[in-house]
Amino acid sequence: MPADANPSGDIFGGWLMGLMDLAAGNAAGRRGRGRFATIAVEGMKFHMPVLVGDEVSIFAEVVSVGRTSMRIEVEAWRRERSEEEMCLVTEGVFTFVAIDENRKPRPVPPL
């Protein structure tokens, strides 16, 4: 939406990064069966802008699991409304730690 963009019509990187964090959090919660907190974001790369009106698809994949944490690779792709081709626009690695009801680290359940 226009409120999420700069005067040139490019979507704010922080808005896109927030969606990527949500996608990574969903992947962490499914794999770890519970609550997780973001503790780090590495290697964010913004390859090209997302424009107002573009469709954005976000894909997240768990790439490693430790005792209480996991790393998740996330990609954001854009598609112009009138096109079929999708383009990679942003990627990064999000690290999450599993937390219990007291917000203390807890073990990630085995597969």
Rank of each mutant, 00 (worst) to 15 (best):
I58H: 03
P7V: 15
A5C: 13
A76T: 07
G34M: 04
M70W: 01
F12E: 14
G25L: 07
P107G: 08
F12S: 14
T38M: 06
G14Y: 07
D54C: 05
E42W: 06
A5N: 12
T95Y: 05
I39D: 07
R81F: 10
F59I: 14
R81M: 10
F46D: 06
D100K: 07
V93D: 02
M20N: 04
C87W: 15
I11L: 09
V52N: 03
D100T: 14
S64T: 03
E73G: 08
V108Y: 02
G66D: 05
G32R: 01
G25Q: 04
P107L: 13
M44G: 07
G14L: 09
M48S: 14
A76M: 07
V63F: 05
L16G: 06
V108S: 01
A37Q: 08
R35N: 10
W77G: 08
D54L: 07
A28E: 00
N6F: 07
R35W: 10
T68A: 03
G25S: 15
T68G: 02
E85Q: 15
A3L: 11
G13H: 11
V65Q: 02
L22S: 09
F96Q: 14
G9P: 14
A28Y: 01
I11P: 02
G32W: 01
A40F: 12
R71V: 08
D21N: 09
R33W: 00
K104D: 05
V56P: 00
V93F: 04
S69G: 08
V41M: 13
E84P: 11
A76K: 04
R103G: 09
R103T: 11
E85R: 15
R103H: 11
P109E: 04
D10T: 08
D21W: 03
T95H: 06
E42K: 13
G92D: 05
M44N: 12
D10H: 13
F59D: 15
V97R: 00
V41N: 11
F96Y: 13
V52Y: 09
E101G: 11
F36A: 04
I58A: 00
S8M: 15
I72R: 02
R30K: 08
E85Y: 02
R81V: 04
L19T: 02
M86N: 11
M48C: 12
A40R: 11
A60H: 01
V108T: 01
F94T: 03
W77M: 14
P49S: 05
D10Y: 12
R67I: 11
F96T: 10
A5K: 12
K45R: 13
R67P: 08
L51R: 15
N6S: 09
E83F: 09
D54F: 10
F36I: 04
G14F: 11
W15M: 12
G9V: 05
I58K: 03
G43D: 14
R81P: 09
T38K: 07
M20T: 02
T38H: 10
E55I: 05
D10S: 13
E101Y: 12
F46Y: 14
F59M: 10
V108A: 02
D10F: 13
E75T: 05
E73T: 09
A5V: 08
R81E: 14
S82R: 10
V65H: 02
V65Y: 03
T90Y: 03
A27V: 01
M44Y: 00
M86F: 09
R103L: 11
V56N: 02
I99A: 03
V74G: 04
